[in-house]
Write a protein that binds this DNA or RNA. Structure first.
Length: 275
DNA sequence: AGATGTCCCTGGAAGC
DNA sequence: TGCTTCCAGGGACATC
């Protein structure tokens, strides 16, 4: 499932190739998460200036307006510079396609948790509603110990749940939340406001390390697709705890445990990770 | 207002 | 083998 590293690698896979492309045709498939029915006419003849990312959203900045894309949990984007005639026909899970002067952008999403939303600008209420509540970017300078600690202090929920919520720090999904907590040796059910400042710092560094590793792996994945058609797939991360319930901890051999927090699975080592 | 629960969707795995 | 059931996940929304 695409978390921040996957989304960023997807962005890198086509941002340079799509810049200055003019939108010539828009095809909509089945409705996605928010059936807002973007008006295809609205996109025609607009130019893609660049592609940015905010949290797990990709933002296609147009010469007028912005297209927000979310990959949900099963979505993938592909930008093909090939001739349209050389592309496979649209499949049942291709829900959105932009034909441009520089290639074709397709969103494939079997489970349809993804989203395509058009906003006149980032000040548009629909864009603000989706983006304004998002927390700080974990791989940028703004992710400081001071603000991270302050954010956690304001809550009374488990540290795992707080990480997932995305309003303190973005981009840490269910996999990397478990992995980062293992890395920082923090028990997932510990109340976030009770984590000491030094341990919050460990967690901050762990989040960055885990995401950077995934990003580096994704980067190499990308390079292997030398034609760079953007089909990145998902990273085969060497998980320390995620989905390893019952298997020995790679550090101490204690069997990894699985619990449920907020209807999500959490994996941890009861010996390595302390309350 | 903050915390928690529910729901959306469908492929794949597990169970019978 | 072929059916049914369950599970995974991000995040909006409802409810406590």
């Amino acid at each position: 499932m695409p978390e921040l590293p996957e989304v960023e690698v997807t962005r890198l896979s086509f941002v340079e190739r799509i810049e200055n492309a003019i939108i010539q045709k828009v095809v909509m498939g089945k409705p996605l998460r928010w059936p807002l029915g973007i008006d295809p006419e609205e996109l025609l003849l607009k130019t893609v200036i660049t592609v940015k990312r905010r949290g797990k959203y990709l933002l296609l900045q147009l010469d007028q307006g912005v297209l927000l894309l979310h990959l949900g949990m099963s979505g993938s984007l592909r930008f093909d510079s090939e001739q349209p005639s050389k592309l496979p026909p649209l499949g049942p899970h291709d829900h959105f396609q932009l034909t441009t002067s520089k290639g074709i952008l397709r969103l494939n999403d079997p489970r349809r948790f993804g989203a395509v939303v058009y906003a006149n600008s980032l000040q548009d209420p629909i864009a603000k509603k989706l983006l304004d509540k998002l927390g700080v970017e974990p791989l940028q300078d703004g992710f400081t110990l001071a603000q991270f600690y302050a954010g956690l202090q304001k809550r009374r929920t488990s540290i795992k749940t707080a990480l997932l919520a995305g309003d303190i720090v973005v981009g840490v999904g269910n996999i990397y939340a478990s992995e980062a907590l293992f890395e920082a040796k923090i028990h997932p059910t510990k109340l976030c406001c009770d984590v000491s400042k030094p341990r919050v710092e460990k967690l901050r560094l762990a989040i960055q390390k885990v995401l950077q590793n995934a990003l580096a792996q994704g980067g190499s994945t990308l390079q292997n697709f030398s034609s760079a058609e953007g089909q990145t797939g998902y990273f085969q991360l060497q998980a320390n705890v995620y989905a390893r319930q019952g298997e020995p901890c790679r550090v101490c051999s204690t069997p990894i445990l699985q619990i449920t927090q907020g209807q999500r699975s959490t994996f941890y080592c009861s010996k390595c990770q302390k309350k």
